[in-house]
Amino acid sequence: MLKQVSAILALSISTHAGAISIDLGAATGYNLFIKENFTQPGADSQGKIAIGGNANIGQYDVGVNYEPGTWRDGKQFWTEPGKYSDVLVVGGDLTTTQWAWGNVKGNLILGGELTQGSSKNAVLGSTTKATPIDFNAAFTQFNALSQTLAGQSNTGGLEFKYNNWLILDGASSNDIYVANITGQMLANATDLTAKGLDQNDTLIINVSGKNINFDSLNYGKRESFDALDMSASNILYNFFEAENITFSGGIKGNILAPNANFTFLQGDLSGQVIAKSWTGGWGAQANLWDGFFVPPVEPPPTPTTPPAVVVPEPSAVMLLLFGLLALIVIRCKRA
């Protein structure tokens, strides 16, 4: 199951077609993993980003991990002050605005150059010249995985009620549930419910179509169906045919779209995105799963130590009186 908060890790699932191995290898731990170019003028990502081509991040913040809807910091990408993790990998050139200052909340690994006019103060940590990721090999793997998942049949029944409500009717098989839908169904859908799934299952939704435009999808209670009790890290949308995807709104779940140019207009996307290219708007925020933010823990109250009782030392006069009394008792016994 996709239980790790930081990534979709190796997974073997048993279906009618046998065992499938899900291993996102190089993309493990990244909020966004993009094969070619990346453009976004502002907003932020909660997690780390890897880009194979050129990147223009403008005033975009990378690796902030704010609590959604607030400015409160969560767990940052370092263990000690001044010791940062690698939060941004760019295979080509990187462009920021001249006003960028500490936008990259960690270290930068850069294959190309900071282009003319970019702020050299944009990186909070260090900058290293290197190309540590083989994006071509990684996306060869992702394409094979995407097609393998697309070949799986529905685990249970699927109803598209009122032309806006996806209802999955069935129980998972070996903790896996596969649902096959069209891009038009996703575009029209406002709700998704599945009474047979729980937080221990993994939901794989295969979405067909080359050009897909969709927005928010609600997993809450509707009519007699309870809310879908699953973490975003356990939901994978597989866009196995997509060439262009446009998204705006709010959704929780991981997106595998290895051949798609992904355009994120605005909203809040909680999950990992693997795509060919990325174009984002000022209001497009990416969160690393729905559980990555680690709120500060209030320290336990310091136990109060009861005041020590001070026993006064006997005075010299009292010692003298006790001594005289002892002498009197001894003499009386001898008499």
Rank of each mutant, 00 (worst) to 15 (best):
A100C: 13
A308G: 10
T182Q: 03
T115V: 10
F38N: 03
M230D: 07
I204H: 04
L94K: 01
N234M: 11
Q266P: 02
A284E: 01
I235N: 06
P68V: 06
P41Y: 00
D169A: 12
A150L: 01
A194R: 10
I255A: 08
A17W: 00
L9N: 15
F262N: 04
Q59D: 15
Q59W: 05
F135R: 06
S248G: 12
I330F: 13
V62W: 08
A137C: 03
G157H: 06
N238P: 13
T302P: 00
T140E: 07
N121A: 11
G250C: 02
Q98D: 09
E113V: 01
A189E: 08
P314R: 04
G47P: 10
W101M: 06
D226Y: 04
L24N: 11
G82H: 11
V297W: 11
T127F: 04
N287Y: 14
K161C: 02
S224N: 11
D73I: 05
S14C: 10
M185T: 11
K129R: 11
T246N: 11
R72G: 09
Q4K: 13
N121L: 13
Q141A: 14
M230G: 07
G18F: 06
N136A: 15
I51D: 00
T304F: 01
K161L: 09
N107F: 13
Y177M: 02
A260C: 06
V294S: 15
G151R: 05
I109E: 07
E159Y: 03
